[in-house]
Design a binder for these strands. Structure first.
Length: 697
DNA sequence: GAGTTTGAAACT
DNA sequence: CAGTTTCAAACTC
């Protein structure tokens, strides 16, 4: 069909104009939902959709992260997860610009490339209207996908509307019902994909409009959470089924930097099952960091993939991708099921910044049973005490050559955390998995493990008990603090030594020089709160020593790797450590991006820490710098009000936290202009029935 | 891989 | 809160 001129995408004069349009009326007639209710209920609806485990399982780490954006963007995301039509309705009613979506429906259906390329999205003007346009554009897509025409087959608008209306009717009847039908599953896949795409689009558009990245990230995190649930729905009980290609590939896509905007999303856009592989292939040369980021988030889950792998190149790539997909699915499943731990993105923050873990993940390395001993490996590579460094030539380790090897090794092993519990049933904090808010998985060597989804109730109950005893039990153990003060040039003070263990250590014999010491393990210096004796912590001694002993690189590495094990980190303003972290420094978490309360907050922080982002940048992001100021300013805007008292003790100016659980420990990072929104969301959440799968025992 | 050491977590 | 026990990771051989 003809491609309408872009000028057609000009701001909509008035909503009423479209309300009078035949199409609009037709939609209204189809939808059982009253227009007037949309605005009032979309929050609730979306809240429900985004009801994160952390929301359900109160913890001191309440995130004030929900800001105004939430009320707007989240709608779309969540809505998409449950009812694309509803979403469309929301779009139509909550966004002035969205009303034109219908008119543009055909246009966009026929011009997927326009959007796919990302150029259109980037090319549009940078005002809010563009965002709305983008959002509005989702309507036609939604309709299209809902109609099961992911292949690009065009269907008459009437048909689309008809089908979607039917769908919404079904979904309203049981919003959480699982889609058994493969077609629907696929549709959801597309919806997920679309949401992710939207995130990305919003990210870029927001970027240009000076919007708060954290907000976006938060939304993204939530969306990812949502997607997780969706994926979970589709995969639970059938873990081995083919992965959702669109979602997976798209997740990687959206997290990419602007420079990747031009990447072909065609495959994902069209829903081509092979698209994932193709896309993966396509990006491999440029070391797609996104999958890496995601993979890092999902590290612990990567190893659960099937072992059957083709050896031929093509097959290998596809299999690799398939593994990634499965990994994501697995992770998502875990996130979804995780006892209120939400997504676990912490691992994200712990991977090497020099390389793309995924790029190093070969099918063989992902074979079941070949569980990377991430922690050990990482530590050995970096710990000054380990043979790897001690035995080896330390200076050599700093050579580019060694460094590369080191990181490669790290990446190969930076995949998982697994426990070896024998008597705790993995239901105590002794268990790393449990402490991190993760279910134990295959690679764990635990015995009589109860930390599994099938024992969800038990896990939840135990967790609750522990939290009742110590509300911060699952909170990040390490708080990284920087003075946050950015000079005009955007420079921020950064000192790993400013990172501190929440409680402090109690070492007697290790002199805080071994990993027995939690401070050392986390790569942070000891603080006055430590009760250690003979502290020689190289990262900073209790008495005020500093990390001068080790060079910055070592510190960074050690810190990073130390945290590998200790995912319970609160990270503060680490963006400066990876100054080039463009997006997000934007980084978006372990996911509890975790994809979890864990997501929204952690997701952001994990990403912020994500070395992969740096890598991406290093790979050529030229405009990344443009993100920085905004991000930094954001960081500085974090209010402390909600910081747990315990944490406050250790915090100075700015604090952001990521919990292993990706639980947002505190840090309402924004002046709550967002508070209003947030508050309203809370109210809504209360009014919404608990998410079935998160029922507490 | 077995045994030891260590310090956090749990318990009293 | 302090002392003790339990536990699993870290470490050594």
């Amino acid at each position: 069909m003809d491609s309408p001129d872009k000028t057609q995408i000009t701001p909509t004069p008035s909503l009423s104009k479209f309300e009078d349009s035949p199409v609009f009326k037709y939609i209204n007639s189809l939808s059982p939902i009253e227009l007037a209710k949309f605005r009032q209920t979309d929050n609730a609806f979306n809240s429900l959709a985004f009801l994160s485990p952390s929301s359900l399982f109160p913890s001191p780490q309440i995130s004030c992260h929900r800001e105004s954006r939430f009320s707007v963007k989240r709608h779309h995301f969540s809505a998409a997860s449950n009812s694309s039509v509803l979403q469309s309705s929301n779009d139509l009613n909550s966004n002035e610009g969205a009303s034109k979506a219908i008119e543009q429906s055909d246009f966009y259906d026929e011009q997927p490339g326009c959007l796919n390329s990302g150029s259109s999205f980037k090319g549009v003007s940078s005002d809010r209207l563009d965002e709305q346009s983008d959002l509005a554009i989702e309507l036609p897509r939604t309709l299209k996908y809902d109609c099961g025409s992911p292949d690009g087959n065009l269907e008459p608008c009437d048909e689309i509307l008809k089908n979607t209306s039917e769908k919404v009717t079904r979904q309203e009847g049981s919003p959480f019902q699982h889609n058994k039908d493969e077609g629907e599953e696929r549709q959801q896949s597309f919806e997920n994909e679309r949401d992710l795409r939207k995130i990305r689009r919003i990210m870029w558009s927001e970027e240009s409009t000076g919007c708060d990245w954290v907000a976006i990230v938060s939304d993204v995190a939530d969306l990812l959470t949502m997607n997780s649930s969706i994926i979970n729905e589709n995969t639970e009980g059938q873990d081995r089924r083919a992965a959702d290609p669109g979602t997976t590939s798209f997740i990687s896509t959206i997290l990419q930097f602007p420079l990747d905007n031009s990447n072909n999303l065609e495959s994902t856009e069209t829903g081509d099952p092979n698209g994932s592989c193709k896309q993966s292939e396509f990006r491999e040369p440029v070391t797609d960091q996104t999958p890496a980021i995601l993979s890092t988030c999902l590290l612990d889950k990567l190893v659960v993939s099937d072992s059957g792998l083709n050896k031929d190149d093509e097959g290998e790539k596809c299999n690799l991708y398939s593994h990634q997909q499965r990994s994501i699915r697995r992770r998502c499943l875990v996130f979804e099921k995780s006892p209120g731990f939400g997504l676990h993105l912490n691992s994200l923050a712990n991977t090497s910044k020099d390389q793309n873990p995924l790029s190093k993940l070969t099918p063989s390395s992902m074979k079941r049973g070949e569980v990377p001993q991430c922690n050990k490996a990482v530590v050995k590579e970096n710990s000054p005490e380990t043979p790897a460094t001690v035995g080896g030539n330390e200076t050599d380790l700093n050579s580019p050559e060694k460094k590369r090897t080191k990181f490669e090794h790290v990446e190969e092993n930076a995949a998982c955390k697994r426990c070896n519990c024998k008597r705790s049933k993995c239901l105590k904090l002794y268990c790393d998995c449990f402490a991190a808010g993760l279910y134990c998985i295959e690679p764990c060597s635990c015995q009589d493990c109860f930390n599994k989804p099938i024992h969800e109730n038990k896990v939840l109950e135990t967790r609750r008990q522990i939290e009742s005893r110590n509300p911060l039990a699952f909170a990040p153990k390490v708080i990284r603090i920087t003075d946050s003060v950015s000079d005009s040039g955007g420079e921020t003070n950064k000192t790993p030594a400013s990172a501190r263990h929440k409680r402090g250590c109690n070492c007697k014999k290790s002199s805080c020089l071994k990993k027995y010491c939690e401070c050392f393990q986390a790569g942070v210096g000891c603080s006055p709160s430590c009760r250690c004796e003979g502290c020689k912590n190289r990262f900073g001694q209790k008495g005020g020593g500093d990390e001068s002993e080790s060079d910055g690189e070592d510190l960074e590495t050690c810190e990073r790797n130390a945290s590998e094990k200790n995912s319970h980190d609160i990270v503060i303003n680490r963006s400066e450590e990876y100054p080039d972290l463009s997006v997000p420094s934007s980084d978006l978490s372990r996911l509890p991006f975790a994809f979890s309360g864990k997501l929204s907050g952690s997701f952001l922080h994990s990403i912020r820490l994500s070395p992969q982002l740096c890598t991406t940048q290093e790979l050529g992001s030229s405009d990344s710098s443009s993100f920085r100021p905004k991000f930094e300013s954001h960081l500085q805007a974090i209010p402390e009000d909600k910081t747990p008292e315990t944490l406050k003790h250790n915090l100075s100016p700015v604090l952001e936290a990521t919990s292993p659980n990706c639980k947002r420990v505190s840090l309402p990072h924004r002046e709550c202009s967002s508070s209003n929104t947030w508050r309203s969301r809370k109210l809504i959440l209360r009014s919404v029935p608990p998410f079935p799968s998160f029922c507490q025992p």
